[in-house]
């Protein structure tokens, strides 16, 4: 069984199965259970689409303190706009203060 799981809608994640990821199809209602299941199965990396992560922010934040699993967001097929990585931006502001990263 693969140590890499990918959670999202079917259209986005289905092709990843061909590459050997474990695909877990989820929607807004059952994403919490599926994410918990993936964590309890000791997956090392969990990719999750940006739309679904909104429903399980708390669970995802809990995993951030531990070395594993690593949760990484990916864009889904459906959203076409540029994603805003709110949590990373917040983290930066907390650590180094605002305005430090904007000068680029």
């Amino acid at each position: 069984m693969s140590q890499i799981a990918i959670i999202g809608d079917k259209e986005t994640i289905f092709p990843f199965q061909a590459i050997g990821f474990e695909t877990l199809i989820a929607d807004a209602e059952n994403v919490k259970e599926i994410f918990k299941k993936a964590v309890s199965q000791k997956k090392l990396i969990i990719f999750i689409t940006e739309e679904l992560v909104l429903f399980i922010e708390k669970e995802v934040n809990n995993t951030m303190k531990k070395p594993y699993p690593i949760v990484t967001l990916i864009p889904s097929v459906l959203d076409s706009e540029e994603s805003s990585r709110e949590d990373i931006v917040k983290l930066i502001e907390k650590v180094v203060g605002p305005n430090l990263m904007k000068e680029e």
């Binding site: 092709p15 990843f16 061909a18 590459i19 990821f21 990396i45 990719f47 951030m64 303190k65 070395p67 690593i70 990484t72 990916i74 990373i88 983290l91 907390k94 650590v95």
Partner: peptide, 23 residues
């Protein structure tokens, strides 16, 4: 897809490093 998957894993490890460093 195969190319991207490799890059995605790199990104994952950087992301984790960022969180650990922040803590």
């Amino acid at each position: 897809y195969i190319n991207i998957v490799k890059k995605m894993l790199e990104l994952s490890s950087i992301e984790k490093a960022i969180y650990l460093l922040a803590a």
